[in-house]
């Protein structure tokens, strides 16, 4: 008679008790939907990709004996290195251009707008409410042979023939990437600029710093976290970008993303595509680490 209720209580104590007693367990339980999505959507595909990159193609099927042949090819054949370098070059320039162009905007909103700041932020991100693809297509209209730029230059008499290099070139890809990812630079820059303690600026002015020195010695170093975040947010996704070079790049503007797509498409070599994806991931990770290391050093020097 007495044993049954006792067992009942102990059973309740097991799961329920753990849920209430252990903070960590409760945290993971709350996180579980996100963790499941992360595991199924990121970890598992990545493992499949890693596995596949060591296979080889055999007709329409895969030869599943493990080999590093794909990686050897990626090192030996110049096409892969060239595309990788070109991708880093294009997306590096696009990143620098985006951050340089967005910094003044974020600065203005953070320091010189005092009312309706939210409205300003919304207005700045307004173009990004349309899809990425539409924005890329819009740039085709702007840069095209009969596009906005060529038409206005023609009508003002600056040129006699439309400028052909505007579209289907690396320039076109860089311009489009710099615009298409601007929102991802403005927001982190704004947040880090907004956080800066205004009394520090006053102190700098009181101690005799002019506007330029004040910016270089106070504002810029304190906003560096935002600059770093923006750089990462843009550089990482644009390196592997596929659709912009596909639509605007022309024969010489293709990037590593297009090469990877080809492996999964026309060339039909999925293991090679998987190997290239892994290589790209590793390269980006390495570049990111170096960048973090350099900025840490720089911060220490500034401080």
């Amino acid at each position: 008679m007495t044993a049954a209720p006792a067992r009942h209580i102990r059973a309740r104590g097991g799961l329920h008790g753990a849920l209430h007693r252990s903070k960590a367990f409760r945290g993971y339980a709350l996180l579980s939907p996100a963790l499941v999505v992360l595991f199924v959507g990121v970890v598992v595909p990545f493992l499949i990709l890693l596995m596949m990159s060591f296979w080889t193609r055999q007709g329409f099927d895969f030869d599943t004996t493990m080999t590093t042949l794909n990686y050897a090819r990626a090192v030996d054949e110049p096409i892969f290195g060239t595309f990788l370098l070109r991708s880093f070059w294009v997306s590096g320039i696009a990143t620098v251009a985006t951050v340089l162009l967005c910094y003044p905007m974020a600065y203005y909103v953070a320091f010189h707008v005092h009312r309706n700041k939210m409205l300003w932020i919304i207005l700045i991100t307004l173009p990004f409410w349309t899809s990425y693809l539409l924005r890329v297509f819009a740039w085709r209209v702007i840069l095209g042979y009969e596009g906005v730029i060529n038409a206005s230059l023609l009508s003002m008499g600056f040129i006699e023939k439309p400028l052909a290099f505007l579209l289907y070139s690396q320039t076109a890809v860089i311009i489009t990437l710099a615009h298409a990812w601007a929102a991802f630079a403005i927001l982190p820059l704004y947040v880090s600029l907004e956080k800066i303690d205004r009394s520090l600026l006053e102190a700098a002015a009181d101690l005799g710093d002019g506007p330029v020195r004040r910016f270089l010695r106070v504002t810029l170093p304190l906003s560096l976290p935002g600059v770093i975040a923006a750089t990462f947010l843009i550089f990482i996704p644009t390196t592997g970008d596929y659709i912009t070079p596909a639509l605007l790049g022309g024969p010489d503007g293709a990037m590593i993303g297009n090469l990877i797509q080809l492996q999964f498409g026309a060339v039909n070599n999925w293991p090679m595509g998987a190997a290239l994806s892994i290589i790209l991931t590793l390269w980006i990770a390495a570049i990111a680490l170096v960048f973090v290391f350099l900025t840490r050093r720089a911060e220490r020097v500034v401080a």
Partner: peptide, 19 residues
Amino acid sequence: SQEWETRMNETFEMIKAGF
């Protein structure tokens, strides 16, 4: 054949990419 098609695509894609 599939082999021909794959070889052709691989070759042509390389050429289009400038190699």
